[in-house]
Computed example of a mutant assay.
Amino acid sequence: MQMKTETDIVQMFERDRETRILLEAVARLDLPDWWICAGYVRAKVWDVLEQKEATAVADIDVIYFDTSDTTEATDQMLEARLNEQLPDYPWSVKNQARMHTKNDLPPYRSSRDAMAQFPETVTAIGLTLHADRVVFFSAYGVSDLLQQRLRPTPSFQAPARHLIYRKRLAEKQWVKNWQGVHEAENETTGLKKI
């Protein structure tokens, strides 16, 4: 399947049986402002672009935003509930109302705001269900994702956080796992949050 637009991405995910099963499992938790985001979404898009078998992901990132309970114990309980539903998947649940502290950033205002602060533009993406329809979010548009271009988000362009971005690129080895993945020549050109 050729993908050139956000609509193409949404249609691909709407047809993907596994994605539907995962989204419905998370929806049953009835969390506020929830999304499956980052690596699972990115890997699916890149696998389809390169017409390759599904790449195993380290975890399935589920985020939500709830200022009324920011305890890590609640996230662990939610992971356990997902593991009861679908035990063959590596769930990771994080309430974004507390995760800003991980990278010493100001508090996030929502899950979308949190995704916009993720290290890479191609990771600042997510899926959710609204009225049983797949909703796709990309904080910086789909160009980097579809062109398999790596660059930091604005939050990771400053020297201290840029080191975190560089370390992640080395650890994740996306360039080795997907033939078309490459770093942007000028990593910071033209980034605007949508």
Rank of each mutant, 00 (worst) to 15 (best):
M1H: 07
Q2W: 14
T5D: 10
T7C: 10
D8P: 03
F13A: 13
E14T: 15
D16W: 08
E18L: 10
E18Y: 05
E18V: 09
T19C: 03
R20H: 01
R20N: 05
I21S: 03
A25I: 04
V26A: 09
A27N: 11
L29R: 01
D30E: 14
D30C: 15
L31N: 03
P32K: 02
D33P: 03
D33T: 09
W34I: 15
W35H: 14
I36S: 02
I36R: 02
C37S: 10
G39A: 09
K44P: 01
V45I: 07
W46D: 04
Q51I: 05
Q51A: 06
T55F: 03
T55R: 10
A58Q: 12
I60H: 00
D61F: 11
D61K: 13
I63V: 02
F65N: 02
F65P: 00
D69K: 09
T70A: 04
T71R: 11
E72I: 12
A73V: 09
L78S: 08
E79N: 01
R81N: 05
N83G: 10
N83D: 12
L86F: 08
P87T: 15
P87A: 15
P90R: 13
W91R: 04
S92N: 15
Q96T: 07
H100F: 13
T101Q: 13
N103S: 07
L105T: 09
P106V: 01
Y108T: 14
Y108W: 13
R109K: 11
D113P: 03
D113E: 07
Q117L: 10
Q117D: 05
F118P: 06
P119I: 09
P119Y: 14
E120G: 06
E120K: 03
T123G: 07
T123I: 06
A124E: 12
T128E: 00
L129Y: 00
L129D: 01
L129I: 06
H130E: 00
A131P: 02
A131T: 01
D132T: 01
D132M: 00
R133E: 01
R133W: 00
V134E: 03
F137H: 11
F137R: 09
S138A: 15
A139M: 10
A139W: 15
A139Y: 15
V142Y: 04
V142C: 05
S143D: 15
L145N: 04
L146V: 07
R149N: 14
L150S: 08
R151P: 07
Q157S: 07
Q157G: 01
A158I: 15
P159K: 06
A160V: 10
R161D: 01
Y165D: 05
Y165W: 02
K167D: 14
L169A: 04
A170E: 15
K172A: 05
V175P: 00
V175F: 09
W178F: 08
Q179W: 11
V181T: 05
E185M: 12
E187K: 03
G190K: 10
K192R: 11
K193H: 15
